[in-house]
Design a protein around this nucleic acid. Structure first.
Lengths: 203, 203
DNA sequence: TGCTGTTTTGTCAATATTGACGGAACTGTG
DNA sequence: CACAGTTCCGTCAATATTGACAAAACAGCA
């Protein structure tokens, strides 16, 4: 009885599927590629395809998830006594935007994708980010449960980061440096305190 | 040329579909009901069904959307010089939980539904809420665009409300009054100022 | 009423997804 | 190697969704 058996084979087909899919996507576009083609290219059945990925489009977003993994690690590496906002900021600035396939795959095929799908996925990533922060805080304070203040704090931080992303997405010229800058600004607004001389002063 | 023609017929089938669906769902459960059955009961084709609702499950969540409509109206009715957090709080407390089919339909069939589906929808509602608040603020300040501080402010408020909901959902005993109380608390935390003597003091 | 442009449906045919069941491959052991 | 337990995969058969195209219903107008 081993806790993680046969993950070898499974992982192999997962990789095969991903590779096959990206090749097709690149060559003939996402919508023009059928799930069946991907499965065949990878040498498995259609059903097996769906055993590894919840949907055809999830293959596109798989890269985002690896980014999230990276983020969790980055957070964990920060000192425990550092203010949480500072930890998040540091992680965001250290993010390997150019290495992570995140930017590439997602961006260059984005135009072809249904905007709703993209937005929905961004929501999911934001949610996962909030979750990662929540867990990080929970671990740091040694609490066994997700308390109200931890949850809300984490969500606000995620909201700040993705609020920056929303504004960034609406711009014509978008550089990754700008995105980091915007995040920096919104996180600072949080630190400064929304109610005192921060954002809420205006509303 | 009228801006909203023939919406009469369309609305009629939409209602028929909704009615048929809810009846089936109630009687035999959501998963055991096929989209085709609903369409037939409503006297239309399967294709027409999907012209009115993006998916079978959206029929369950349609009620949530009407709740959002209500919220928008409630926000608009608040005085323009009232602090935004206060406006939101007031709207939340005034929400007709018992009247809106929100609570009923969603809650009692929730157990049968895929949790992921529910979570995804809650994310969507949170996003829509943030959007509603953003638009409200934008109108109030007369800005033509969604500025960084408006967007982030709105998102944080939504985050506070849904953070409260997350914690509420994890409890065994859940009363609507408790939910309102939790929201009240998290909104106050925002007002107090995260960075000064609010949540961030602890992290 | 008859004409015309628009909106809503029906029809047909691909795909996309998912549940159920049985066989194959893999791991740890004796 | 044979055996037992587990995990992964193939097969089959429903559904769920979506795109393309044409007919039907409806609104405004001569």
């Amino acid at each position: 009885m081993s806790r993680n058996p046969q993950t070898v084979r499974s992982e192999r087909t997962r990789v095969a599927l991903r590779r096959a899919a990206l090749a097709r996507f690149q060559a003939q576009g996402v919508e023009a590629t059928s799930a069946e083609q991907i499965a065949e290219d990878a040498g498995v059945t259609l059903r097996t395809f769906y055993r590894h990925f919840p949907s055809k489009h999830d293959l596109l977003f798989a890269d985002y998830d690896s980014g999230l993994q990276w983020f969790r690690g980055a957070l964990a590496a920060r000192p425990d006594d550092e203010p949480i906002v500072e930890s998040v900021r540091a992680a965001i600035f250290a993010f390997p935007y150019d290495v992570q396939p995140l930017t590439q795959m997602a961006a260059f095929r984005a135009a072809e994708l249904d905007p709703d799908r993209i937005v929905a996925h961004l929501r999911q990533v934001e949610s996962d980010l909030a979750d990662a922060i929540t867990e990080h805080l929970r671990r740091r304070v040694g609490s066994s449960e997700r308390t109200l203040d931890i949850v809300v704090t984490a969500r606000c931080i995620a909201a700040a980061v993705f609020g920056a992303m929303e504004v960034w997405m609406l711009r014509e010229k978008r550089s990754l440096a700008d995105l980091a800058e915007l995040s920096h600004a919104t996180l600072t607004a949080l630190e400064t305190g929304l109610g005192v001389d921060g954002l809420f002063r205006h509303y």
